[in-house]
Write a protein that binds this DNA or RNA. Sequence first.
DNA 1: AAAATTTATTAGGCTTGCTTAAAATAGATT
DNA 2: AATCTATTTTAAGCAAGCCTAATAAATTTT
Lengths: 229, 229
Amino acid sequence: MKYSASKENYLKAVFHLQQAQGTVSTNALAAAMQTRAASVTDMLKKLKSQKLLQYERYKGVKLTAEGKRLAIHIVRKHRLWEYFLVDKLGFGWEEVHEMAEELEHISSKKLIDRLEEYLGFPDTDPHGDPIPDNQGRMRVSKAVQLQELPVRTTCIISHVGDQSAEIMELLNHLRLTIGTRLEVKRKFSFDQSLEVMLPDESLITISQHLSSNLFVKPEKNLALSGPES
Amino acid sequence: MKYSASKENYLKAVFHLQQAQGTVSTNALAAAMQTRAASVTDMLKKLKSQKLLQYERYKGVKLTAEGKRLAIHIVRKHRLWEYFLVDKLGFGWEEVHEMAEELEHISSKKLIDRLEEYLGFPDTDPHGDPIPDNQGRMRVSKAVQLQELPVRTTCIISHVGDQSAEIMELLNHLRLTIGTRLEVKRKFSFDQSLEVMLPDESLITISQHLSSNLFVKPEKNLALSGPES
DNA sequence: AAAATTTATTAGGCTTGCTTAAAATAGATT
DNA sequence: AATCTATTTTAAGCAAGCCTAATAAATTTT
C-alpha cells in the first residue's frame, strides 16, 4: 500500500515525538508539522481508519505496529539519502536535510536497498543518527545529552538532536562536528551553561539550549578511572 | 517558482508530443497522461494563466519559452537519475523508467548539478536519449529511424523511441541494446519488415512497428563506399 | 450546405489536505 | 464543586486535481 507524502510526514513526526513523550498530543504534532490543530485532528482520523495509529478524541495518539514499521522505513530512507548526499555528492551535513525530506518519499523499496548496498551499509547518517536496516532494526544509540555529563568527563559528539539550519550555523562556528572529542570542564548552575575543552585545548562555553541538543558517547576516562572497574 | 509534480508531468508530455506534432491536441495529451480530456482542459487553463504555454480553446497547445525551459529541465533530471540508477546502482536499463518518474520531481537544482558532475557529465541516458546540460542545451542526435535506412547500410542503435516495458522485453529477447551494430539486409514491402544482421552474423526479422522505434546512427559503410566521398 | 461525427469544453461533484471560527472537553484554580 | 483556561474537536469552506455527463465547436461525410 502506498501513502501520500503528507501521511508519511505525519507518521514520521508521531514516531519522533513518541520517542520522547510516549503518547503525542495534537498541539505537539501541529507544531512539528507547522500546521493547525484542526488539520491534525482531520489527519489523525484518516490514519486511524487505516490502522496506522491508535487515537481517541482528546487522548493523544500512538503508532500501531504497522504505523511504526512504516515510520521507521521512512526514517531509513531519509538517512540513507542524507548519507549519499554527503558521502557521494560532497554536500555539507548541514545542507542535506531539506533535500532528504523530498527524497524520503521516493517509493521503490528495491532502490533504497540497492542504495544502501552502494553506500556500504552505513551505520549512522551524517548527523550521527542510526540508520535502520531493511528489517527496520535500528542499532540503539547509547548516547546521552552532553548536558547530563559530570565535570571532567571526556566524550565524543555522536549526534545532534535538532536538525535546523540555525543549530548548524552555530556548530560550524564553534567548530563542533560529529566525532569531535570534548572534555567537560565546568558547569554553571546559574544558567546551566557548560565550559568544555576542544582537542586543541581551547575552551568554549555552551548554553543549556545547545548542550541539551548535543548527544555524546561517554569515553572511558583514562585520566581518572572511577571506583567502578 | 515551484510547480506541482502533476504540472511538471503535463509540461513534459507537451514537450515530447510537440517534438513530433508541432502543436498538441487535448486528446493526445489525455492519452499521454492517462487521464480524461476534461481534466486536460482544466489543467491547460491553469498552465496558460502561469504563462507556461500558449492555448486557445479548440486550437491545441504549444509551450512558451519558459514552459519549454522547465520541461527540458525535467527531462534533464529524469535522464540523469536514470543514468545514476543504471551506472551506479546496477539496475537494468529497462527497470529504471518508473523510478526516474518519481526522482525527476526532486526540486533542488544544486543536487542535480552535483549529480551530473558525480556521474561524469554523461551525454546520453541508458536509452540513448541525449541529456540536456544545465543551460538546457541538448546535443542534437543525428539518429534516424532504422526503418528509413536503405538495404546494405550498417548502423549502430543509438536510442529507443518507446520506453515501455513491452519493447524492453522484446529487445532483450532479440539481444538488441544501445550500441549494437546492425546491417540492413532486406526490406519487405509487404509489411515493411526488415531483415538485419547482428555482429555474430545471425539474421533476425524486425517488424515495422519495432523498426520505427529504433533510432540508429548510420555508420560509414567500409565494405562498399558509395559515389559520394 | 446540411447532417453526422469527432473533438473539446463547460458544469457540477468528489477527495485530499489545508484553513478559520465556534463549540466541546479536560485540566487547573479557587 | 464551580469556574476558568487551555486543549482539542467540529463545522464550514477553499484550492488542486481528478471524475462523469451534458453541451458546444470543429471537421468530415453525404
